[in-house]
Simulated scan of single mutants.
Amino acid sequence: MTLRVGLTGGIGSGKSTVSALLRERGAVVIDYDQLARDVVEPGEPALTAIAERFGASVLHPDGTLNRPALGAIVFTDPDARRDLEAITHPAIRDRAAQLEREAGEDGIVVHDNPLLVEMGAAEHCDVVLVVDVPEQIQIDRLVRDRGMSEDDARARIAAQASREQRAAAADHVIDNSGTKNELVHTVGGLWDELVRSSAS
């Protein structure tokens, strides 16, 4: 039996590190950040719909998506963000379902999705893992590691589900405010539990 695991966490929480650790242990990981890029490639219906909704300014001259231009619109306008999500989320869900089918009948499939809660996808998972850190740690990491201004970091965090909303959907909350070794130990214990669940 396939065990469907939802993995989420706020930007800067370390979700990608947890995803990599699970992949190393044998999970099939469906990376929603990658799916979000795939569905807006030139020729994809979602990119056509985005250009129709937001105008030619969100496209580069070669027809690819101008992410900074689109981001500048949707991260400051909740209505625009909802319109974008109405275009991209169904396309992402369809692609994820296809990849899960291709993964086969057995094993542990991790849906690595920063918007698991926002997309209403948590309810379709057997187990939900939430990577969590205090907001100030998120801000510090985004400023230090991604070169964002503090205001940009706060805007990105505010555009996502709150820590409380994610925790409410969680079966396990992974505290990633400690060291990498602590995280590795925590994920190893969780993996053992997931393996037992998938075998039962």
Rank of each mutant, 00 (worst) to 15 (best):
E44R: 14
M119T: 11
G9C: 13
V117I: 13
R166M: 06
W191D: 09
L7K: 09
F75I: 04
T48I: 10
R163G: 05
H124E: 07
A155K: 14
P61L: 03
E164W: 14
A86Q: 10
N176G: 12
E105H: 10
T8F: 06
A27H: 13
N176H: 14
D152G: 11
I73T: 09
R82H: 03
A27I: 15
L116R: 03
R53N: 01
G147Y: 09
R166F: 15
R141E: 06
T179K: 10
L59C: 08
S197K: 13
E100T: 13
P114T: 15
L21N: 08
E118H: 07
R37Q: 11
A49S: 13
L59N: 06
A36W: 10
R93Y: 01
G10A: 13
Q165K: 11
L115Q: 01
E41W: 02
V58K: 04
I50L: 07
I174G: 05
S200Y: 00
E105D: 14
R23E: 14
V74I: 06
R25P: 10
R196I: 03
N181G: 15
V143W: 04
V128F: 04
E105Y: 06
R101C: 04
K180V: 15
R82D: 00
A72S: 08
R101Q: 12
A91P: 00
I139E: 01
C125Y: 00
A27D: 10
D145I: 11
V29A: 09
A167V: 14
D77C: 03
R25N: 03
S198I: 08
A91L: 03
E118L: 01
G43H: 05
T17M: 11
Y32R: 05
A46W: 01
E100M: 13
L47I: 06
A155C: 05
W191H: 12
V40K: 02
E44M: 14
D192V: 09
S198F: 13
V109C: 08
A167G: 12
Q98Y: 02
F54Q: 06
H111R: 15
A199F: 08
V130A: 01
T88H: 00
A49V: 12
E118D: 06
G55Q: 13
V133P: 04
A103F: 15
E24Q: 14
A161D: 01
M148H: 08
G10T: 14
L35R: 07
E52F: 05
L70C: 02
A86C: 04
V28Y: 12
E41Q: 13
V5Y: 12
D79L: 07
P90V: 07
L35V: 08
R82F: 04
G6E: 05
H111D: 01
Q34A: 15
D62W: 08
P114D: 04
Q160G: 06
R37M: 07
L116K: 09
L7Q: 06
D79A: 07
R101S: 09
G120A: 04
A159N: 03
D151E: 10
G147A: 11
A51I: 08
T8S: 03
R4D: 02
A20L: 11
R156K: 12
A158V: 11
